[in-house]
């Protein structure tokens, strides 16, 4: 592990720190993007079934 990439005797510690940070940030970004896609898909599914933000609630008279 000595002089790893010219980073001296402790190159492994330095690369591990940067690598872990990259993993955590990539995980956060991935989680946020996947979550966004899931919410959009679920909303689109409801819209398809006629449950949209602009749809009016069915009154009793309409149902009868």
């Amino acid at each position: 592990m000595s002089t790893l990439l010219g980073l001296g005797n402790h190159g492994g510690f330095i690369l591990a720190a940067y690598g872990l940070t990259l993993l955590v940030v990539a995980g956060l970004v991935g989680w946020i993007l996947v979550d966004h896609r899931e919410q959009k898909r679920a909303l689109a599914d409801l819209e398809r079934r006629g449950i949209g933000r602009r749809s009016r609630p069915q009154g009793r008279g309409e149902a009868a």
């Binding site: 919410q39 679920a42 909303l43 409801l46 449950i51 609630p57």
Partner: peptide, 15 residues
């Protein structure tokens, strides 16, 4: 995402 999640929750309750 959280705003969309809450919108989804409201719509499901409406449904």
């Amino acid at each position: 995402n959280e705003i969309l999640r809450r919108r989804l929750r409201t719509l499901r309750m409406m449904e």
